[in-house]
Structure formats: structure tokens, C-alpha cells
Amino acid sequence: MSKLLKRALKNSLVPAILMIAGKALGIFIVSAKYGFPLEIGNDINGLFSTQIYFEDAQVTYFVNSVSDLIMLIVIAVPTIYQIIKTAIFQSTFSNPKTIVKIAKFNMIQWVTRDDTTFLKIFVWCAFLWLCTGLIVKNALEGDSFTWIAIVGCILSLLSGFGALKTFEIEVSRVYPDSKKYY
């Protein structure tokens, strides 16, 4: 098995688990906090034939929206964190001002730990796009707040752009620009 495939499998497990956990915990936390009665049923309606029922349509709408938001945050925050970290790390190579600023904030150890790769960012970004797709679908069907879908779209576009930039940096490491050296 190729190394790339092994690492892709390893890197995609955490966001997959977080995506499900974010949605499920979102539903249960909101229900518990606001005291909404919920029921778990086994009607044959979906692939897993397990549904979560609420009595009121407004409650369903609210719980679904908040759980979508929690799922989005759970995936978006680590993705953006990794992109920012990589961007700062790469910036230190070309810009001495960045090193000075990082030293000033005592963040050198955090930034220089190069454990974030393009593959990791790409996998997290793919999960963020998946989450956004689901939220947009919900918003279009009137099951979730529209602003959550808009926030998701903006975050996905930004992280997509960030992932692309990281890819460019990784590529320039392998194939450096000849003008830089000669």
C-alpha cells in the first residue's frame, strides 16, 4: 500500500468522527439545554432506519440549525487553524519580520513544529466542503437557517483558497522556482 494512501486513511479518521460527533452532540446538547423532549424511533425511512423526533416543527428547525452550526465549527476551526499555522510557518522562510513577530508573541515552538502537511489540510478541507454541502442542502429545503449556509460557504471558500496556497508552497518545495536561485 502506498504511503500516501496510508496517510490519507490515517488523516481522514479524525474529521470523519468529529463530523458525526459534532452533529449528534449538537442535537443532544441543545435538547438538554433547552429541555426539548425528543424521541428516537426506528421507522424505515432512511438508510440506518433510526430517526430523532421532536414534537414541534419550530423546535426541529432550531435544533437542526444549531447542530449544523456546531458540526461546521467542529470541522472549520481545526481546518483554519492548520492553514494559518502552515501559512505562518512558510512565511518565516521568506520574511524575517514574521520571525520577529512570532518570537515577540513566544510562538516559535508552536509554528516550527511542521506536523501539518498539505494532505492533512486537503482532507480537512474536503470534510468542510462536505459539511457545507449538507448545510446548504438543509437551508434550501428550509430545514436550517440560511445564514449558517452562507457562513459555511464563506469558510469553505476561504479554506479552499488556503489549501490551494499550501499546495502551491508544497509544489514549490519539490520544484523550486529557478529564478530564486540563479
Partner: peptide, 28 residues
């Protein structure tokens, strides 16, 4: 098989999240 598992890692959470979406129903 590894490619299949990788695809499933993306597909299963998507289907699970769709199934987790709450539904309105008069509770007993």
C-alpha cells in the same frame, strides 16, 4: 480495498449526518 475504505470514510459520515437530521412528529 484501501481506496474503497477511504471513500467509505467520506460517505459514511455524510449518510449518518443526513440520517441524524431531526424530524417533526407528535410524540407519545
Amino acid at each position: 480495498f484501501a481506496f474503497g475504505i477511504l471513500a467509505l470514510i467520506f460517505i459514511i459520515p455524510t449518510i449518518t449526518v443526513v440520517n441524524l437530521e431531526p424530524i417533526t412528529k407528535v410524540l407519545k
